[in-house]
Nucleic acid binder design. Structure first.
Lengths: 141, 141
DNA sequence: TACACAATGATAATCATTCTTATTTAGGAA
DNA sequence: TTCCTAAATAAGAATGATTATCATTGTGTA
């Protein structure tokens, strides 16, 4: 696994440093989707000479080079919405624009699906779709 | 609209203050899902005597009393994931635990749905499900 | 082996958010 | 209407995560 990671670094033209390897290993070991902070804590335990700034830098550069992905959570939420009905979101990463997307037919489809295909060991309470893409116009509806 | 908001405040036992009304109006006016910062900027323009701390307080208390909702975005992302394949997430708000959820059948269902039901003025690039609920066990699989 | 430049360490700076405390105000009671 | 009390607010300090700075170190190539 290490070897593959080292190869990937080289493919991307990134130097293979012990810090990068250690940080990647930390994420794999902390396989429950660690936060940057989780990684920093782990690194402090196991590689106390790696500095905090480096962890952030490495994480960023690995994400930039698609050796790592970022994932969002329910917490640490940033936007406020005066519309209270249940709705999904259309999101354009380029322009940072968000629009609401209400679609009862889709909700039913998904609910039926999970009714028929239960997830093992998990009770579903709510499902939100984040639909990423591009808007065709620049005018707000 | 204002009147309804004032009534809602009273129902919740919250005092009707000019600050709360102004901040609510700001969110309605900035209807493209403002960030706290967006609201603060707007307030600074239109109600320069309302302090930044108050904006945060009011936003929080309105969310707590379900007069406002929070919405997440792609940016401001906090978690790192070494699994690069396309997958959704099961999320438990209580324990902050995240598990990957891979389901090709579901992906196909959703893709087919959007194939048949295009969204007006929007080109879909990626769809992510955030499935919130509760895990039945505490043991990591 | 030497060199150039990318990467790192240490720490300062930043920026959004939260906290603190004194002051003000909304809204019920007299 | 006026008074009173708890709730709400203003101002600014404090916090905490992230980013920037810059001198030093290390990787990988010639």
């Amino acid at each position: 696994m290490d070897i593959i990671f080292r190869e990937k670094l080289q493919e991307k033209g990134l130097k293979v440093t012990p810090q990068r390897v250690a940080i990647y290993e930390a994420i794999v070991k902390l396989n429950n989707h660690p936060t940057a902070e989780n990684v920093i804590d782990y690194i402090k335990e196991n590689h106390p000479n790696i500095s905090v700034g480096t962890v952030y830098n490495v994480l960023d550069s690995l994400v930039e080079n698609t050796l790592l992905k970022k994932v969002k959570t329910e917490k640490d939420i940033m936007r406020y919405d005066a519309i209270l009905s249940n709705h999904h979101h259309l999101y354009c990463a380029e322009t940072d624009r968000i629009e609401d997307y209400v679609d009862e037919k889709l909700n039913n489809l998904i609910n039926e699906y999970f009714e028929a295909n239960k997830i093992k060991n998990f009770k579903v309470q709510d499902i939100k779709l984040q639909i990423t893409g591009k808007f065709n116009n620049n005018i707000k509806s």
